[in-house]
């Protein structure tokens, strides 16, 4: 495990608010191997974006408390000099966001935004940076990049804008790319194109990738490993196959059952998980998922509501956080 490219240890992120402390991430431990693609799934509010922003260092330090360790290729991101960390953003690690329209500055030409990204990290002339920008646009499949480079974001379609964001993220050859719901804001027809593009580029460059998504189809297509988050915690982690075919935690099973599947494994009916996401200010005692769990009867006593289960081995390269795995009556 120590040679993993990205290693997160007991990450805790909380936001002090007027209503109390929001514990968005509570003790997240995770690792991603070099060149691998990890998918993070989980319902809204489970802490996916906060985790991504903690890795990138995009959380406002004045309004956030962060604890734990994040090692990127051996560099401790939370402990290193902020200036060094800034210089890693956009070069060692890059991120693309959900809404490409609002993520591009409306007043600047896409070319200028790309050129800016190049020149922060590379000591090149404007002309050379422009050439790189055009090449970058070509690489993400934007037709006629010599002309498009002078467009403003509002002159491009949603899919094109997301391609620009991808070009911008990749322009300095980052080793880690984080994509936070890169297709959610796009038309269904365009979603597949963007997914394909990211997979192609990942193959070409060998970039390590973290994809946050609600689309389990995207997960199956792109990811080597899947991490399921719930209430700011990892509740299941494993290879995509293991998690899909042997989900070991009731929440994961519910998640998989709530989407129609083409391969017939769970295709009987749509089955969204009943109940509401847990409060992050006053989380439930014991297992955070227990108030919504349909399988807790299988665990003896009131273990689920009193003791938080550990992340235990559920198979080779597969772990889950559930009392069923240790105490359950099969």
């Amino acid at each position: 495990m120590s040679h993993d490219f990205l290693q997160i240890n007991d990450l805790r992120v909380s936001f002090p608010t007027d209503d109390g402390v929001v514990r968005a991430v509570s003790g997240l431990t995770l690792s991603v191997g070099r060149g691998e693609t990890l998918a993070i799934v989980g319902e809204s509010g489970s802490g996916k974006s906060v985790t991504a922003q903690a890795i990138m260092g995009l959380l406002n330090p004045l309004a956030t408390e962060i604890d734990g360790r994040i090692l990127l290729d051996g560099v401790d991101l939370l402990a290193c000099d902020p200036e060094h960390r800034r210089s890693m953003r956009g070069s060692a690690m890059a991120m693309i966001f959900q809404d490409p329209l609002s993520s591009l500055h409306p007043f600047y030409r896409v070319g200028d935004q790309l050129i800016e990204a190049v020149r922060i990290h590379q000591d090149v002339t404007k002309k050379e940076a422009r050439t790189q920008a055009i090449d970058g646009l070509r690489r993400v499949g934007i037709p006629d990049p010599e002309r498009r480079v002078d467009d403003y974001p509002h002159q491009l379609s949603g899919g094109m804008r997301q391609r620009v964001m991808i070009a911008m993220a990749l322009i300095n050859g980052p080793q880690l790319l984080i994509a936070d719901e890169p297709t959610t804001a796009l038309d269904v027809t365009v979603q597949a194109q963007i997914t394909d593009l990211m997979m192609d580029l990942q193959q070409q460059t060998g970039t390590t990738m973290i994809v946050i998504t609600h689309d389990l189809g995207v997960v199956a297509e792109m990811a080597d490993h899947v991490c399921v988050m719930y209430g700011g915690r990892v509740v299941e982690y494993g290879t995509t196959d293991a998690v899909y075919y042997r989900p070991s935690m009731p929440y994961t099973r519910g998640l998989l059952a709530s989407v129609p599947r083409l391969d017939g494994a769970y295709d009987e009916h749509l089955d969204p998980i009943p109940g509401n996401p847990p409060s992050l200010i006053r989380p439930p005692s014991g297992c955070v998922f227990h108030p919504r769990c349909r399988e807790r009867e299988a665990v003896p006593g009131d273990l689920c509501s009193t003791v938080e289960p550990d992340l235990v081995t559920a198979g080779p390269d597969h772990r889950a956080r559930c009392h069923l795995l240790t105490e359950g009556t099969p």
């Binding site: 800034r86 953003r89 956009g90 966001f97 609002s102 500055h105 990204a117 990290h121 993220a169």
Partner: peptide, 14 residues
């Protein structure tokens, strides 16, 4: 609080 400000920070701009 705009998204493009987050993008600017994500680029590594000071």
């Amino acid at each position: 609080g705009e998204d493009y400000i987050r993008t600017a920070r994500a680029k590594g701009l000071p």
